[in-house]
Nucleic acid binder design. Structure first.
Lengths: 335, 335
DNA sequence: ATGAAAGCGCTAACAC
DNA sequence: GTGTTAGCGCTTTCAT
């Protein structure tokens, strides 16, 4: 085989045309004559020519790269969103540069770094704890958030978090629960706040009581779910139904209770949020609110591409629907 | 702020030096005089200059990109390896291009595509089912496998899979189990094969019997674990202890049994492989074999960088140790 | 419909 | 120790 890689020059020489024609054949085939087009394609075939993305990008003043900023690569929750992103970005010839905001020192500064570095044609934000002011950079590339944020002007893909919380509360209330508690996500995270707010609103809409001690602080992790179980056990008056802001916490919560000899749902009903794969494999199956994570990624990527290409967007925000999944971890309260 | 981005020319003009000196200041600071170096750094500061990676890469005939090929981005098992890879690659100024081998039609062809496309300075393979012949491409970039493979000549990071299986079997045998079964990973996957082989060898070394029907075929997924539970239930003579080739399958297995009213470990002892986070949050906690996944990623990335930079490697293969984690899903067999 | 030619921003010989 | 210069491979006016 050839020792060196073929360049556009080689193709041009073999096809007996100029490099400009080869370039056109690849980018705007309709403007070259059929016969020359075929000659060029033949030459490409015989040389095994592949366009050099670096040179192309340099000339076109773009990078061909999208930066994805997320709080934690190792969190499986994000991997499905990544899969959705990749399914759109890869065919569009964009590479994904994945960066972990929590690994470095100051996440906000990292965001600013990427926005000014010129290393990317666009940025996708999956970290809801970054400060909106970090986006105040003139001439920055387009940004799409695939998470809720204080800021409502930046393009974003959002999930019906408040409605999800209301579905969870409604479900428990319909089963007969009157004492319903909540385990939150991390403070300062907008997902946490929105779900907590949705939880509170749903309770008061139903005329159900809410005690402060029934709101237990978590951070989405399994460990914090296990800790919430211990907190719940220590309560004087325990809610009979619990809505947890993530399935991971629900897993930790149920596991801890079961290891202490309690039973779900006889002792307490549990509802999670996310519908991670394991939810239906647990015993009891975990009742939860499904978020279509792949779809979140797909839509975010599509919005970003549209922003990069045209600078335009149909609507600034897209809302993704959630779906309630009733399983066996919730039942009528003990009497 | 400036409308346009500063280039090396702007810096050179302001610092009163040539572009070459600016470039040197950044790449080999030791060769420029202290005073000029400071002037250049000042100019960089005031202009907010950031090196244009695309131009630099074009000139240096590299891409600054490493391609990571994995079977399934959405699988949490890989996300921790990715985190390990990123922790090495990002500081070294390499971007990770993540590609899913299972999304397209022919995985082998995809690998070949990336190898010839010149889109990357190196490739990291996390898919053990790709055919070794796909690597037979002259002039291809360096490849490191972070998974076992038939081929032992390609640089790779491996895990002591056979030893892990032996640890699992030894543990069950020590508890008194004499009828031990296995749920495999997908056929054709080297991880599966190696663990199955390790399982068989350990049994015969201990003089324990192995019936064909005690080896149940799985594919690493929770669903296949649940299916294995049904298969186990249907056996005439059931093994009292089971080693499953992945924790995900163990989760599916235990969940299915529990939903059918059986109890682990009273009815059957379960040992998994991986030590995914949930293992210790289950009830009962899952006995398993830990693989240090972040470390796998770190070492693979280090090996690849060394290969890219120097073309050399200390040893062609690095073996990563596994660690046995005894929890509550395994106990003495029912008598 | 096609070609000639001018760079995109940077680095690395090679001079001095 | 520093400057000059020639491209890396491609796209895109501007002519023809």
């Amino acid at each position: 085989m050839d020792r060196k890689v073929a360049t556009i020059q080689d193709v041009a020489r073999i096809a007996g045309v100029s490099t400009a024609t080869v370039s056109r054949t690849l980018s705007k085939p309709s403007v070259v004559a059929r016969s020359t087009r075929e000659a060029v394609l033949d030459a490409i075939e015989t040389t095994g020519y592949r366009i050099n993305a670096t040179a192309s990008n340099l000339r076109r003043q773009r990078t061909g790269t999208v930066i994805v900023l997320l709080p934690d690569i190792a969190n499986p929750f994000f991997s499905q969103i990544l899969a959705g992103l990749a399914s759109v970005l890869t065919p569009a010839q964009y590479g994904m540069l994945i960066a972990d905001t929590q690994s470095g020192p100051d996440p906000d500064e990292q965001l600013a770094h990427y926005l000014t570095s010129g290393q990317a044609d666009g940025v996708i934000l999956l970290d809801g704890t970054l400060s909106p002011r970090a986006l105040d950079i003139p001439g920055r590339p387009p940004v799409v958030m695939a998470c809720e944020w204080m800021d409502t002007t930046t393009p974003s893909v959002r999930v019906e978090n408040a409605r999800g919380a209301a579905l969870a509360v409604g479900h428990l209330a319909r089963l007969g629960h009157r004492h319903i508690g909540h385990v939150t996500g991390p403070t300062g995270n907008v997902l946490s706040e929105t779900r907590l707010e949705g939880f509170r609103d749903a309770l008061s809409a139903l005329g159900l009581p809410l005690r402060d001690e029934w709101v237990i602080e978590g951070d989405f992790s399994m460990d914090s779910g296990a800790a919430a179980a211990r907190a719940w056990l220590a309560l004087d008056s325990r809610p009979t139904g619990l809505f947890l802001s993530s399935d991971q916490m629900a897993v930790g919560f149920m596991g801890e209770l079961q290891r202490r000899g309690l039973t779900v749902p006889s002792d307490v009903s549990v509802v999670g949020f996310d519908n991670i794969e394991i939810a239906r494999h647990l015993s009891p199956g975990l009742t939860t609110v499904r978020q279509p994570r792949t779809r979140i990624g797909v839509r975010a990527a599509e919005m970003l591409l549209s922003l990069i290409d045209t600078g335009l967007l149909e609507g600034p925000t897209e809302m993704i629907e959630v779906e309630f999944m009733a399983r066996e971890s919730s039942a009528a309260p003990p009497r």
